[in-house]
Write a protein that binds this DNA or RNA. Sequence first.
DNA 1: ATACTATATTGGACGAAGTCTAAGTCAAGA
DNA 2: TCTTGACTTAGACTTCGTCCAATATAGTAT
Lengths: 155, 155
Amino acid sequence: MDDLLQRLRDRGWRLTAQRRVIAEVLDGEHIHFTADEVHARAVERLPEISRASVYNTLGELVALGEITEVTTDGRAKRYDPNAHHPHQHLVCSGCGTMRDVQITEDPIRALPEGERFGFTVSNAVVTYYGRCPDCAAAEAVAGGGTGSGQARRTA
Amino acid sequence: MDDLLQRLRDRGWRLTAQRRVIAEVLDGEHIHFTADEVHARAVERLPEISRASVYNTLGELVALGEITEVTTDGRAKRYDPNAHHPHQHLVCSGCGTMRDVQITEDPIRALPEGERFGFTVSNAVVTYYGRCPDCAAAEAVAGGGTGSGQARRTA
DNA sequence: ATACTATATTGGACGAAGTCTAAGTCAAGA
DNA sequence: TCTTGACTTAGACTTCGTCCAATATAGTAT
């Protein structure tokens, strides 16, 4: 973590209390927080920190390659501190929880030359969706619906 | 397209002018529109159609499996009418263009049992990122910058 | 053809997520 | 210590999407 702060200082970052706290929050957990979650935890240590600073700092860390932005569905972006080890994500379509996973093959090899349309393909993001044990259990209790949820609003 | 409307009627859909127009818009193009783009095009044919109806109808079509919702970045969701042929997406990180692509392997098989953490994995989404020929050419002309741009806001 | 009713539509209020701005603050170097 | 440009802040604003009560209407029964 000190590594992170040192790297940032080396790149000309001004080290403010806000940035330090945000770095600490990201470092402490292996969870992928949303910006609001980062803010909530930062506030515990530095009550006057603003949402804008959290957004600014997260954006800068992404631009510097220190963290990765993950957009799974239409919900809030999540920030993945584990940017230095390539991995994919497994997301619960019930509650949105996200886990890092390692896969056994390079997905880029599954894309044949004839399907590249002249693109220079540099990156593949694989996201797995499913139900986490908790949500699966909650569903089993709630009764045997199809599980896809919310086919129609109830007006 | 009549197929689509027929399928929907068979499933008990009430066929309204609004739904017909939305289906027509989706059918006409191979582009993946946002909800607002769908609305804009629907308004041309049925000026009084509301945003709410577009959102409702798109949501229902997704729930019925007739179209697919695609979220690439944190922006508006896009709707992919090509839901009956499984495919993945190739996105240009320069201009955002998106193409449908077919891959040769089932990505779910690349996720070992030990990496599933008790989840019931039902779906895998692969998104390839790269440069389309146009953007690559533009870069070559513009000179050798890193191209990732915008490291810091200029206050 | 008419009436009926569950379902669909509408506009607008509301909410979540994120961006922007102008004014004030402060870390780091001279 | 002084200076200054980078950083932070509050809050207005934008975008995307959802929800609601009131109204309209497709499809069916009569």
